[in-house]
Simulated scan of single mutants.
Amino acid sequence: MTPIFHLALARDWEAAQRAGTYTVSTRGRSLAEVGFIHASRADQWTGVRDRFYADVTEPMVLLRIDPALLDVPVVEEPPGPGASETFPHIYGPLPVRAVVRAIPLDRAAAAPPGPPEPSALLPDVPAAPGRPDAPRESFSRVYFREMFVNVTLLCVVLAVGLLGALAGHAVSDEGGVGIGGLAGVVVGIGAAVLLFRRRHGGRRA
């Protein structure tokens, strides 16, 4: 599901992690007072920050929320009478487990107004269980893991080709090695492609 976002003071988020739920509606107001928690879509939160949190000097975090993990309704509503734009409102406590990422805004709060690149600030990488602010996996680690996988697939092709050559030699001394090796390489390539597709197909799912 499309994520929604909530701007929070870092101390309020820390308290919520200890309690298990977050119950601040907006700056200076609680869920009990308002009846819902204010949230935003990806293209809205910067405007909310600039309008209502521009003078905040203490640390803040941007909570990225997965609506599928909520057990309370999320309703799209205008923020007030006469407003045409709607915002997502969370009608109940926000469970900490529904926050898939908490992004520190110490530096972003001082940035010039305007929506940042979503891929730069809001990556689609889930946080580790119980650690919503855990850093993303490093590029070098991903790179070397993918290189290892590709080399392993190449070794599979070569091994199957060698087995085919040995089998061909056992059947016939004349041309058996070449035919068996070629057949083995074809089978190995097919197996490698199948493994590659299953691995990356599983990631997209």
Rank of each mutant, 00 (worst) to 15 (best):
V142P: 05
Y22A: 10
P73T: 07
R107E: 04
T23A: 15
A170T: 07
A120W: 08
G82S: 12
P126C: 03
L195R: 14
H38S: 14
T21K: 15
H89N: 15
L166Q: 15
I189P: 06
P126M: 02
C155E: 07
E77V: 01
P79I: 14
S140E: 04
S138M: 11
S40N: 09
G164D: 11
V100A: 03
V96A: 12
G175H: 09
A102I: 04
D12A: 09
A19I: 12
P95Q: 03
G181Q: 02
R11N: 07
D133W: 01
A109N: 10
L62R: 13
P112R: 05
V157E: 01
R131T: 07
A191T: 07
R107N: 05
E33T: 06
L166Y: 11
T57N: 08
V74G: 00
F139W: 03
A10H: 12
A102Q: 04
R204E: 03
D43L: 02
Y143F: 11
A127K: 06
D12V: 12
R11D: 10
H38M: 12
G176T: 13
L194G: 06
V96N: 08
L94I: 08
G190H: 11
D133M: 02
A42L: 00
R41Q: 09
P115R: 07
A110N: 00
A32V: 12
R18E: 07
A42T: 09
W13F: 13
G35R: 10
T152E: 04
G82V: 06
R198A: 14
P73S: 08
A68Q: 05
G161S: 10
G202R: 15
E146W: 03
I90G: 02
G130K: 11
L158T: 14
G164P: 10
A120K: 14
I179Y: 02
E117W: 05
V151L: 07
A42Q: 10
R27H: 00
A83W: 12
A128Q: 06
P104R: 09
V48D: 09
P81D: 03
V187H: 01
P132W: 04
E137A: 12
P79Q: 12
A159H: 05
A128M: 11
L182M: 09
P116W: 00
R64W: 08
I4Y: 07
F5G: 15
L162C: 05
G47D: 15
L154D: 01
S30E: 14
A127G: 15
E137P: 05
R49W: 01
P135H: 09
D55Y: 08
V125W: 02
H89E: 13
R145I: 15
F36A: 14
G164R: 09
R199E: 04
V142S: 14
D71P: 13
F196K: 15
M147A: 05
G130C: 08
R49E: 03
T57P: 06
F5M: 08
V34T: 11
I179D: 01
A83Y: 14
D55V: 06
P135G: 02
